[in-house]
Design a protein around this nucleic acid. Structure first.
Lengths: 227, 227
DNA sequence: ACACCGCGTGAAGAACCCGTGAACGCGCCG
DNA sequence: CGGCGCGTTCACGGGTTCTTCACGCGGTGT
């Protein structure tokens, strides 16, 4: 049973490692959010313990990134007790939220509860294929006919929400909030610009779309069939 | 989305009921553990909020009894903060443990997290079928004989309120308010135009309607049987 | 029988939206 | 310090959608 610990404080990493290993878990530890996402993709842990106070990126960002390609249980550890922090983390896709300092017995029990639930899930493929187009959600890598395509962060973010919601009509507001953040919702010119960039780089034609269909006045829709 | 609240304090029951119902949940409440187990079996709730301090039986006992026949998510609410209580409840099969007093926003977020985990397994089918016509409410996609039909936003909005109120007589004013907004109510020409567009695109004949029947002087009625 | 009302039909102007191309500013790295 | 990548913003032309109008037709009541 492999557990990934993402925390920047070495003593906490050590404490978690010893306690977890004493209970029969295998433990991997990393110190930054970026390493956390990479390890979640490459190591395939069965549980992630994630500290929210990371130096390089916000904790909810890590959750969103991991949730893009995996449904592995995530338990958040944080010193922040405010409701808004908890709500943000849970709604981003976390399974549980424990405030520091916490009791190790409680954390172990919550880990058992999270792992017990995981029983009925099916392993998901982190690589989506649409004809000659491939999107590796874990590595954030896009290839077309085995040729790597370079996308800017915003372009990739938009592509990710599109391919993970295939067939669905995604409204302008929904896309903007999802890719640019909660403060956005009316900047449809952003979408036009980035949808255009995606279509160009992915070889799609706006007048005869095979990937991204525009629904006038409403939003966009990813129409390619996964193969 | 039905939620079962098991708590012996009437004011907590009331508070939970109002908050949950305000967020769109259907709420059942009972006051004893015995009733809780019975309600869990008979009502098939999709989430259980369980107070540990029940008069007739220990809370972990309730969890064990429910877990004997159901995997419905259980969130424990308790005044007890000791680790041993949390461990006991979680190991008995609870999904989460929240200590009173708790913030309602946090509880709602934890409820969403629990329901999200559960919901990912069973595909809720919001696809309505009427013969060869299919309306996918989630994707906002309309197909006829597996062939995609393109509808404008207004056309789709009108179709949606029609198919979600099958058989009912929908007055002009009601339809206009529902599709165009509160400020409308007399513009029957809009309805004529868009009902016509729908009939054309869906292959219905106004003089022998199989989908949309006009009720002269009153409104319209969706008459197709869901299959 | 006749006028009237509501509906279906078709079409046309106006308003809106999208695709396209390009420019500007900012941070970063050499 | 200069270029480069990226995000943001603007303007224009063409297409789609919304709104509005006009004309027949059938049913209703007088």
């Amino acid at each position: 049973m492999k557990v990934l610990v993402v925390d920047d404080e070495p003593q906490i990493r050590r404490a978690l490692r010893t306690s977890l290993e004493a209970h029969g878990y295998t433990v991997e530890t990393v110190g930054t959010g970026d390493e956390g996402v990479v390890a979640a993709a490459s190591q395939h842990p069965e549980l992630i313990l994630l500290d929210l106070g990371l130096p390089d990126m916000d904790g909810t960002e890590v959750i969103t990134r991991v949730r893009a390609f995996s449904e592995v249980p995530i338990i958040v550890l944080s010193v922040r007790e405010s409701q808004s922090d908890k709500v943000a983390a849970l709604d981003a896709g976390a399974d549980d939220y424990v405030t520091k300092p916490f009791g190790m017995e409680e954390l172990l029990a919550r880990s058992r509860a999270a792992l017990r639930r995981k029983g009925s899930g099916e392993p998901d493929a982190p690589i989506l294929t649409f004809g000659s187009l491939q999107v590796d959600l874990a590595k954030q890598l896009v290839t077309i006919e085995a040729e790597q395509v370079h996308l800017t962060p915003t372009e990739y973010g938009l592509l990710e929400v599109l391919v993970t919601n295939p067939g669905k009509l995604l409204t302008h507001q929904w896309l903007l909030r999802r890719v640019w953040g909660q403060g956005y919702g009316t900047e449809t010119t952003y979408l036009r610009t980035y949808v255009r960039a995606l279509r160009r780089k992915l070889g799609d034609d706006a007048s005869a779309p095979a990937l991204i269909v525009t629904e006038p006045g409403v939003g966009y829709r990813w129409v390619a069939d996964a193969t």
